[in-house]
Nucleic acid binder design. Structure first.
Lengths: 171, 171
DNA sequence: ACCCAAAAGTTGTTCCTTCAACCAATGTCC
DNA sequence: GGACATTGGTTGAAGGAACAACTTTTGGGT
């Protein structure tokens, strides 16, 4: 910002909202991660990967598709799937239609783990986020988040998630 | 959750709110980090450390106090302050009152950097978060965040920030 | 005075993420 | 139908964060 346009600082209401919201963003991810790590030995990202697979047809997705749904880079996903494969939660096999592509599929063990883990995770989300809000506030939060998403993700890559689907998924 | 109490799943409204909110939490930190890294060569955490010092009397804080304000562990803070000290943005000196303690103080260069950087950062926060919201929604966001904070941080360690104070700070 | 527990920081190790380089398969354009 | 760019994915090394172990200083108890 070289051309120093006298900054519009935050007024008290804006500042109050931003500071609180920033504090939530600081604390909530760690809290969710801690619960999953404790109860299932999974990072939040690990769990999310499994959850996305659990929602997919055949419990299978191409790596690229999975990366988009989880908002991850391909290298990151590759490493994580390596780890999950080592634990027998996921298996990889070449995609029949495209020789370049790889499919990731949830194993039975992986599915079982998601099914075991989802209830506790939902309970945590409820406890930390939703239960403190009124019905009205839940609706307000949805609209506010939508407004932010319009700025953060104009292309709507993450919108895939915001549709109806299968059972455990939950995230 | 062994005692398997048939889980209260999220209803459509709750699910809609949570998915959108989770997407925001996924994207926003990275966006803020990217802007600061590009314009000032600082991670968001780095910037936050400097900002907290810039608000403190004498631009000085004990490591422990700084760690609380930034929600960091002491080891993490120690490493980061090492780096910032190497760049001449912060200096450390033993605390006169307590031989165990160390004080961290913002240098002149550090102060200058915060002053240069703050406007662009505020502009980014405005653009990504606040400008998309109505005045009413800004107030709603503050109240909603407060409700979550009551669950996430019952002790209110981060509440220190939610008070009025000096100029550049901004975060 | 002395001992022992707790507090304040630092250092080192490990794990995770990101970045860059790389390989293989596909598709395209003369 | 052969060269070249593109897509899909993996791998290895480098930078950051969490956790554990280790000093040093303080303070309380006897």
């Amino acid at each position: 910002m070289l051309w120093s346009m006298s900054t519009r600082w935050l007024d008290p209401e804006e500042r109050a909202a931003w500071l609180r919201f920033a504090a939530v963003m600081e604390l909530l991810p760690g809290a969710l991660d801690a619960q999953l790590r404790r109860d299932a030995g999974l990072s939040h990202f690990d769990y999310f990967v499994l959850a996305m697979l659990s929602e997919a047809p055949e419990h299978t997705l191409r790596m690229t598709a999975l990366a988009q749904k989880t908002n991850a880079t391909l290298p990151r996903l590759s490493h994580v799937v390596n780890k999950l494969e080592g634990r027998g939660l996921v298996e990889r096999f070449p995609c029949p239609e495209d020789g370049r592509a790889t499919n990731a599929r949830l194993t039975d063990r992986g599915w079982d783990l998601v099914v075991e883990t989802a209830p506790g995770h939902v309970e945590t989300v409820r406890h930390l986020v939703l239960d403190g809000l009124s019905r009205t506030q839940v609706r307000q939060l949805a609209r506010i988040s939508d407004a932010m998403l319009a700025r953060l993700d104009p292309e709507g890559r993450m919108q895939a998630l915001i549709n109806p689907d299968a059972s455990p998924s939950v995230d």
